[in-house]
């Protein structure tokens, strides 16, 4: 956000100077205009982002139970507690497994959908809307549908009815963690909600691939189908793919709603945010330890993002090639 605002400062100024007509009022006072336009956002940013972050760092050094204005300084005790806390460390592992699975699956699903929809000759608008619609559903509402009607453990739950036709016994999808069917519930839900949105991104990119490339490939003897896809379509989608993967990883980091709503009173299937919620905002009300965990998590995200930027080269100038 801050980078955009600094750019805004630079660009309108020359435009104004080149204009021939003298303007009334605040001409030349670009500083004032800058603050006028960015001020509200900066204030919002300060109040809702920077102050909480600062406060959180401050809290992490205090014994803050049932209060956000503590007075007992305890140094790094909260950090020690969180770093030796099996639940928190375990949640980082949970997240890694989850991300390693959900990111490629959603990427493949949305790309597949985009390819299918792109080839359609009739009812295009209908199919595009149908696959995009789940994006508009909130995770909480979807979690309730998944939990209570599709993956309900009773004999008339949708999935249990379906597997019942093949003579398979009822499964307690969410209550029983062995085998971990709950992952199936969570992953299907996330794919259903997310893939429509990324499908649209891929669709836009697909339509930007020049038809000449395909013609040239055909003349050079590339077979339609896999070969064309592998050597023309996929390389042309590289920029979009990188962006989609980045967005998917961020979304996975932020996973909260469906885990929170689907898994009640468990010790498994908790990504870091859910774990921290229970620690700080939930019943324990330990804002010190919760903040320490949040700081640790933030540091991790920063490191991973920098590392990923190095590998994928996202944001570098030659990216769009």
């Amino acid at each position: 956000m801050s980078t955009t605002t600094t750019r805004d400062l630079a660009s309108p100024a020359p435009a104004k100077a080149s204009s021939a007509k003298p303007r009334r009022g605040l001409r030349g006072n670009s500083t004032f205009n800058f603050w006028l336009f960015t001020g509200p956002f900066l204030i919002g940013l300060m109040i809702f982002v920077y102050v909480p972050i600062g406060w959180s760092i401050w809290l992490s050094f205090f014994d803050a139970r049932f209060t956000v204005t503590p007075d007992k300084f305890i140094g790094f005790d909260n950090y020690k507690y969180m770093l030796t806390n099996d639940d928190f460390i375990g949640s980082l592992g949970t997240f890694t497994v989850f991300a390693a699975f959900i990111v490629p699956t959603t990427w493949a699903t949305s790309l597949g959908l985009a390819l299918l929809v792109n080839r359609l000759r009739f009812m295009r608008a209908f199919f595009r809307s149908v696959f995009f619609l789940p994006t508009a559903v909130s995770y909480v509402a979807a979690a309730l549908i998944w939990k209570m009607s599709i993956f309900s453990g009773v004999r008339f739950g949708l999935m249990n009815t379906v597997i019942g036709w093949f003579g398979v016994d009822n499964i307690a999808w969410l209550a029983d963690p062995s085998p971990p069917w709950y992952w199936f519930v969570i992953v299907t839900l996330r794919i259903w909600i997310q893939s429509g949105f990324y499908m649209i991104l891929f669709l836009a990119a697909l339509q930007n691939i020049p038809a000449e490339l395909y013609e040239a490939a055909a003349i050079d003897g590339a077979k339609p189908g896999w070969q064309t896809f592998r050597y023309i379509t996929l390389p042309q989608l590289r920029a979009t793919s990188t962006a989609v993967i980045l967005l998917l990883i961020i979304a996975a980091y932020q996973a909260f709603d469906e885990f929170f709503n689907l898994l009640a009173k468990t010790t498994w299937g908790r990504p870091p945010l859910v774990e921290l919620y229970y620690k700080a905002l939930g019943t324990e009300q330990d804002y010190g330890a919760g903040s320490a965990g949040a700081v640790i998590l933030t540091l991790l995200i920063v490191i991973v993002t920098l590392f990923q930027g190095k590998i994928m080269g996202f944001g570098r100038g030659d990216e769009s090639k």
């Binding site: 209570m148 309900s152 009773v154 739950g157 307690a172 969410l174």
Partner: peptide
């Protein structure tokens, strides 16, 4: 009891 299959689980 939990693993017996006689317990109702994931009820609405």
């Amino acid at each position: 009891l939990f693993t017996s299959g006689d317990l109702l689980l994931d009820a609405p």
